[in-house]
């Protein structure tokens, strides 16, 4: 600060402030450098021998491509989106909208939220072990897509429920009150007003949950097993996915498989980056256009955008009513 008085104590304080400033930038560098190193390192490893044919060639015992593994990961993501997406979103709706404190269901919402939180704190490997014991062995499904989907969904449901609940809570109360004042039923206003304005937040949560599902390894080893080809049945057939390739091929004797492992890491990073960037785009677009973009068919704004505060018209009568409102 240039306004400080001079003197030995002040000089010491100024020096320590500068030192602290240096330390904070050093911390930023110490985080960014390994992150950049990792991303660039993985990209460089894969890029030096990259062949596009990896994307559509089937795997062979000694090498080949990753077609079925990529498809397997996409199928897992799609299944998680369907199962965990629907359950998680509805659970979030219940936690945010449906809890009526005077009904037994409403009183339960506290414990239910706690249960969801506890489940989200469960390590994924523990859930994988549960899936192995109960589904793979207990129900006799064997390593299979069905067991993997159920365990992955259980993993991300609390996460989706949380993000849904949070984004529903950010919908202004005025929207609900306005809908009620117009005579809409609760269900109709939930569908047409509340959910519609919470949609960007919900979609963002779903995309991040998909990123988690795509990158998960440990519970899948316990539930999906691993194979080189897509099976034709939900149960009793091991299932291919990308993360296992990264996990196990890097120290295989065959150099071809090393390359596959680097390729799989690259593809995983691309998938996750696509999901994260699109969620970020959704967030920033809706923040910018949340209200200002809604215009009537004639181009007239329904309500003012950000930065355009409505001046209450002084002379013009509101809705044609003049004089004092009736009491």
């Amino acid at each position: 600060m240039t306004t400080l008085a001079a003197g030995p104590a002040t000089r010491r304080r100024r020096a320590s402030s500068g030192f602290w400033r240096f330390l904070t930038y050093l911390a930023l560098v110490l985080i960014m450098a390994p992150a950049a190193w990792m991303l660039i390192g993985v990209l460089a490893r894969a890029w030096s021998h990259w062949q596009w044919s990896v994307l559509w060639t089937k795997a062979t015992p000694t090498g080949g491509g990753l077609r079925d593994q990529i498809l397997g990961t996409l199928i897992l993501m799609f299944g998680v989106l369907i199962i965990a997406g629907s359950i998680g979103v509805f659970a979030g709706i219940h936690l945010a909208e449906m809890a009526r404190p005077n009904k037994p269901a409403g009183r339960l919402s506290g414990p239910l939220r706690t249960a969801s939180d506890v489940l989200s704190g469960f390590p994924s490997i523990v859930l994988g072990y549960v899936g192995y014991t109960a589904l793979v062995v207990g129900l006799g499904w064997g390593f299979s897509l069905a067991a993997a989907l159920i365990i992955l969904s259980i993993m991300v449901i609390p996460y989706i429920a949380k993000t849904t609940e949070n984004s529903l809570r950010q919908v202004p109360t005025g929207y609900r009150e306005g809908a009620e004042a117009l005579g809409m039923s609760v269900g109709y206003s939930l569908r047409k007003v509340v959910l519609r304005s919470a949609l960007p937040g919900i979609v963002t949560g779903l995309l991040l949950a998909l990123a988690i599902a795509a990158g998960e390894t440990a519970p899948l080893i316990y539930t999906a097993g691993f194979s080189n080809t897509l099976p034709h049945s939900l149960t009793h057939a091991q299932f291919p996915y990308l993360t296992y390739v990264v996990f196990s091929y890097w120290n295989d004797p065959s150099v071809q498989k090393h390359y596959l492992s680097y390729d799989a890491a690259l593809i995983l990073i691309v998938i996750v980056l696509l999901l994260l960037v699109s969620s970020r785009i959704i967030v920033s677009r809706t923040q910018r256009h949340a209200e200002s973009a809604r215009t009537t068919r004639t181009g007239k704004r329904l309500w003012p955008g950000r930065g355009q505060a409505v001046e209450p018209a002084k002379d013009e009568p509101l809705l044609g009513i003049t004089g004092a409102p009736p009491r």
Binding site: A35, L39, F247
Partner: peptide, 13 residues
């Protein structure tokens, strides 16, 4: 983004 990188990729690196 670093939070979303799969842990198996970080392990490989």
């Amino acid at each position: 983004i670093l939070a979303g990188i799969p842990s198996v990729v970080i392990g490989l690196w």
